[in-house]
């Protein structure tokens, strides 16, 4: 009885592993095959001859470096801007009482529930009127704040005992010093969580750069790669998978190094 239970447990575990992991392995394997080998049926598990040049082909078939630069600029600028706006707003909401506070915080909470899928059309029209379509700010500015980040950081700031801030005041610290030396260091775990969530979210973002761009100038990697593949009719699965591997790698690396953090971050974001 025990053996049956144990082996069925093992089989199910193996099944989970294969279902969720094998597609990525398949992606990697396919990315190293020749065009001919990808078109074999039944398919081969491993490439007969590892075609590392597929990656060079993939990169050369599109303005890859341009997309990559755009992705990096958009992702990093978004994170930095979110840190600035989130820290200042969360600090105000956590430590000041002011007229209109409730309304403003309510707006922040509501904005958390307004998806880009609702606003993109009017924002596109608005940016078109400003004549800044196909520039990077259109991909950054709407994400310069993080409602979730403000909510989370406000909780963190509130959980800091008042005594510690009073102690700092008695230590003759200015308000700025209190924020920089006392409160922010205590908020680092929250900021790491926010940074990871924003990095993953922005790096992966497909919808927004797709609907807000009409040419390659401001496209980020995911949109750029898909657009290029569509343009060439999408039958070169080996280079398509090579591009895809390039897209996944940064996320994979971060996932390998900060897996515990990431899992915690997402648990927190959904477990509220």
């Amino acid at each position: 009885m025990k053996i049956v239970k144990k082996s069925s447990h093992l089989i199910l575990s193996l099944f989970i592993f294969i279902v969720f992991f094998f597609p990525f392995l398949w992606m990697f394997s396919s990315s190293l095959k020749t065009l001919g080998e990808t078109l074999q049926f039944p398919p081969t598990l491993f490439p007969e001859d590892w075609q590392w040049l597929n990656y060079v082909d993939a990169i050369q078939s599109m303005p890859f470096w341009n997309f990559l630069t755009n992705s990096l600029i958009v992702t990093l600028t978004t994170i930095i801007l979110q840190f600035i706006t989130t820290i200042t707003a969360a600090y105000a909401f956590a430590r000041y009482r002011f007229v209109g506070e409730k309304v403003m915080f309510g707006l922040v909470m509501v904005s958390m529930m307004v998806p880009g899928q609702l606003t993109f059309l009017t924002i596109f029209v608005m940016f078109a009127e400003w004549e800044i379509i196909n520039t990077l700010p259109t991909l950054i500015l709407p994400f310069a704040i993080s409602a979730f980040g403000i909510f989370m950081l406000r909780q963190t700031f509130r959980s800091i005992p008042n005594e510690i801030i009073e102690a700092a005041k008695l230590d003759n610290a200015t308000e700025f010093t209190v924020i920089r030396k006392v409160m922010l260091p205590m908020a680092i775990p929250t900021l790491v969580t926010l940074g990871l969530l924003t990095f993953i979210g922005t790096w992966n973002e497909y919808f927004w750069p797709l609907v807000l761009t009409t040419n390659n100038d401001a496209r980020t990697l995911p949109v750029g790669i898909v657009a290029m593949i569509n343009a060439e009719d999408g039958t070169n699965y080996h280079t398509m998978m090579a591009s895809n591997v390039l897209l996944v790698i940064p996320i994979l690396i971060i996932y390998l190094f900060a897996q515990r953090h990431i899992i915690k971050a997402f648990t927190y974001s959904g477990g509220r």
């Binding site: 005992p161 005594e163 510690i164 102690a167 700092a168 006392v182 260091p185 205590m186 680092i188």
Partner: peptide, 9 residues
């Protein structure tokens, strides 16, 4: 302070 209010970081 009663709870010492040390700077934890």
């Amino acid at each position: 302070f009663q709870n010492y209010a040390l700077y934890p970081t």
